[in-house]
Design a protein around this nucleic acid. Structure first.
Length: 150
DNA sequence: GCCAACGTTGGC
DNA sequence: GCCAACGTTGGC
């Protein structure tokens, strides 16, 4: 079992939206590294830290899990979708997604600010300089430590 | 709203 | 293959 962190802008899709929907196809990822984590790294049942980005008080707000293996992101072929990719063709799809299932909200937000000041996290992808990945790996030690903070 | 950091595009 | 221009991310 592996662990991941997935970012979402709460004004677009928040942890409360996931709590309501229960399960959500994580479409719209258009970054190769993030795609590769979903397509090649994730397995059903892997743990996900749900992170709110680009908002006031960014941080980890909930837990989810990987609920499917990777499959083709249908929005890449939808000309009316904002994530439409004219360079991707159905015989060789470029973009993949997985389904994300809600587990629970954290008791409180574990903020980016406190993670930044936490020396016991070690080399955490979220905290690397200039990090912009929307899907990134978390070690089991980091996972346990972050959950101990809530 | 600002802006640093990064990925992608496309001319050459 | 190089690299400048551009668009996006995301904290502040």
């Amino acid at each position: 079992m592996r662990y991941w962190l997935m970012k979402s802008e709460p004004h677009a899709f928040s942890i409360d939206d996931l709590a309501r929907n229960k399960i959500e196809p994580w479409d719209g990822v258009r970054n190769y590294q993030a795609r590769n984590f979903m397509r090649d790294g994730m397995s059903i049942g892997d743990g996900i830290l749900f992170y709110h980005s680009n908002c006031r008080g960014p941080g980890v707000v909930g837990l989810a899990e990987v609920a499917s293996t990777a499959y083709h992101d249908p929005t890449q072929f939808d000309v009316n979708d904002m994530h439409y990719d004219p360079k991707s063709h159905p015989d060789a799809p470029r973009w993949y997604l997985i389904d994300v299932a809600f587990i629970r909200k954290l008791k409180r937000i574990v903020t980016l600010a406190e993670l930044k000041n936490d020396s016991s996290l070690g080399d955490f992808a979220l905290l690397r300089r200039g990090n912009r990945l929307s899907v990134l790996p978390v070690s089991s030690a980091q996972w346990s430590h972050i959950l101990s903070l809530e």
